[in-house]
Simulated scan of single mutants.
Amino acid sequence: MPQSPTAASDPAAPAAPAAPAAVRAVGLRKVYGRGEAAVAALDGVDVSFAAGAFTAIMGPSGSGKSTLMHCLAGLDTATSGQVWLGGTELTALGDRGLTDLRRDRIGFVFQAFNLLPVLTAEENLLLPVQLAGRTPEAAWMRDVVHRLGLTDRLRHKPSQLSGGQQQRVAVARALLPRPDVVFADEPTGNLDSRTGAEVLSLLRSSVRETGQTVVMVTHDPVAASYADRVVLLVDGTLAGELLDPTPDAVADALATLSSVGTAATRGA
């Protein structure tokens, strides 16, 4: 049963799932600029993301959702607070440690497919594993390629693939190293609705069938409905969550958050 939009917008709503956390933030704060020009993109966020679950991060424009994902994934540094990937504190690592962690334990799927045009689909999806000096497990690679419907497309270059096929390659590339967490940043933003639904179904099945952990930033209530849970942000702070979300419940919660933000701005 989806949580009501009213409960979802309550800042006192629980932020952490009961299952063990794959990644979590404690007192996370990110400030851009200095002095009077300083802007807190994240302002003391405490949140955790369950292992083996599909979680979406949502909020109005400027709510801090992309900044949160970038800090969780080690792509951006926090001003203060902690980020933990399992038992490893990302915020205590130096540049080399973060590079190694992102390579070995994190997968990424972006709105832009980020495929190298001179490489085939197979070469693109193998590249991160090869750069890490590892050999992919043959049976796992066959399974990933088969489940993503890429068996007949491995020798094609990106220019010979549709947008949906390119994003499937990107998903396969993210899954191949068996990362602790796959972070997806607007993964359907460049796709039509039908192709986007196919990619979201693939992410959903990777959670259900292989126990993969997926954390996705999206602005689309329909995309968020594929998740087990939606974490809501507004003005850099946690604003609640939705469990077993539906598109209507997500849309209503976002409308409530946007109206609250607008009212606060007018009253300032």
Rank of each mutant, 00 (worst) to 15 (best):
Q3G: 00
K65I: 04
Q3W: 01
A73T: 11
L233M: 04
L191S: 02
S66G: 05
S63V: 07
E89H: 02
A18P: 02
P11T: 06
D100L: 08
V231N: 03
L127A: 08
L28R: 08
G236P: 05
V171F: 11
R34P: 00
D76H: 03
V39K: 06
K30T: 12
V207P: 04
D235K: 12
A264G: 01
A16K: 06
R34G: 06
L93T: 06
V250H: 10
R105H: 08
L233V: 03
T91A: 06
L200F: 10
S63F: 09
D248S: 07
E89N: 13
S159I: 05
T91G: 02
A12K: 01
P247G: 01
T6G: 00
R155M: 14
Q3V: 01
L233I: 05
V214L: 10
T246E: 11
T99N: 03
A197C: 09
S66A: 09
A78K: 11
L243C: 03
A51G: 04
L42A: 11
G240C: 04
R266W: 06
P5Y: 15
R229P: 09
G261P: 00
T256W: 05
L150T: 08
P14W: 07
V169A: 04
F183M: 01
R102T: 02
G236H: 08
E186Y: 14
D228I: 03
A51R: 15
V169P: 11
P179G: 09
D235W: 10
R194N: 05
S258G: 11
V169I: 15
M216L: 12
K157C: 03
A18I: 06
T88W: 01
G35N: 14
R229I: 03
A139S: 13
V250Y: 08
L148I: 06
R34F: 04
A78W: 14
V222R: 14
E36M: 04
V215N: 03
P179F: 06
G97K: 13
E123K: 12
V171Y: 09
M141E: 13
V214T: 11
V222A: 13
L148Q: 02
A139W: 11
M58L: 15
A51F: 03
G44L: 09
E89A: 13
L115P: 04
T265F: 05
Q160A: 06
T99E: 04
A224N: 05
Q165E: 15
P17M: 02
P187F: 09
T246M: 04
A41R: 10
R194P: 00
L232F: 07
A227Y: 07
D76N: 10
Q82C: 01
A56C: 12
T195P: 08
P136T: 14
A8M: 07
I106S: 00
R173C: 06
L42M: 10
A170I: 05
Q82W: 08
G211V: 10
Q3H: 02
D235H: 09
A50N: 02
V260E: 14
A13Y: 14
L161I: 01
R178G: 05
T210W: 15
T218F: 09
L238N: 06
C71G: 02
Q160P: 00
E241C: 06
P17D: 08
A41H: 12
F54Q: 10
A170R: 07
V45E: 01
G33E: 15
G74D: 09
R229E: 13
V83H: 13
G267N: 15
V169T: 15
T55D: 09
K157L: 02
P247N: 03
G87P: 06
F183L: 04
E186Q: 12
